[in-house]
């Protein structure tokens, strides 16, 4: 007789802890041939996540870039050691064995890629400016702050990590609303994050309904930037409009084909630049 499996409760990941929705509500999803209940984040969960992200942010951006790189590399290590778990999760939501493995490998490699970016961003995006007066003048990037990401729906893994990794690599903290197609994979990613020395609150992962959570994040006055991956133009417009209340930096994309996430444009400096602010510092040079 086969051993009876122990099923996992799919929770939200807020402030470094796995929690149920404050409302106690869940959303049913069929994964791997059986129905699971995923936590359904509410407006208050989104608020809590933003609070956690804000609290974590000064510490995260205050760490050395080298240290952030080490932590993201540790995340890659955790993902590597959970390859089977991640792949099983993808297969449960319908991926083939080959496709699932390919996606997991791509996701891990992406983490390694951004681990290496942390201490390059400032160098690549800084200029020393030859001003026409006796002043030392440098422009360099700083993280924007708390970034909310409305992640693409599918596939479940590579887009999720591809959107939040560059943002935290730059020193931001994030609240990610995962796509609703596969909440289990979002939780699997959260488990990797939770075991990778990522400080609590730097990455917060919510599952639930976009229509419920996204407007809260878009309108939240303590969120500094919004990364929107939405096929529905009208919804994107409405969220963008709400984001203008405190002039969030907004990046808007339609949801691309799955193949995009494995192509050359799915990672790079262009994924970091929208979530940094250029600060220019002047100082006289003279005796």
């Amino acid at each position: 007789m086969n051993r009876l499996a122990v099923r996992k409760t799919l929770k939200l990941f807020i402030g470094g802890a796995f929690v149920r929705s404050e409302s106690g509500r869940t959303v049913a999803c069929e994964l791997g041939g059986h129905v699971m209940q995923a936590a359904r984040a509410t407006r208050k969960d989104a608020r809590d996540a933003v609070r956690a992200a804000r609290a974590a942010w000064p510490g995260w951006c205050g760490r050395s870039a080298y240290n952030r790189g080490q932590i993201i590399y540790r995340l890659a290590e955790m993902m590597e050691s959970r390859r089977a778990q991640l792949a099983d999760g993808l297969r449960a939501s319908g991926s083939s064995r080959v496709a699932a493995q390919r996606e997991v490998d791509a996701a891990i490699d992406r983490a390694v890629f951004y681990a290496g970016w942390c201490d390059k961003i400032e160098q690549v995006l800084s200029t020393k400016n030859p001003v026409a007066s006796p002043h030392f003048n440098v422009s360099s990037p700083e993280p924007t702050g708390v970034v909310a990401i409305i992640a693409p729906r599918l596939p479940a893994l590579v887009p999720l990590v591809s959107t939040f990794l560059p943002v935290i690599a730059a020193g931001n903290s994030v609240v990610v609303l995962a796509g609703d197609a596969d909440p289990q994979t979002a939780v699997n990613v959260a488990e990797c994050v939770a075991t990778a020395d990522v400080p609590a609150g730097v990455v917060n992962l919510l599952t639930g309904c976009r229509a419920e959570v996204a407007p809260t994040l878009a309108g939240h006055m303590d969120v500094n930037a919004l990364d929107l991956w939405l096929g529905d133009e009208a919804v994107a417009c409405a969220l963008h409009d709400a984001a203008c209340t405190n002039l969030k930096r907004v990046r808007r994309h339609k949801e691309p084909d799955a193949s995009f996430w494995f192509g050359p444009d799915a990672a790079g400096l262009a994924w970091i630049e929208p979530f940094v602010e250029i600060k220019t510092v002047w100082h006289p040079a003279g005796v």
Binding site: S133, P134, H135, P284, A285, G286, V287
Partner: peptide, 8 residues
């Protein structure tokens, strides 16, 4: 005294 500011 800041030299640059003074000269300015």
């Amino acid at each position: 005294v800041d030299a640059v500011g003074l000269e300015e």
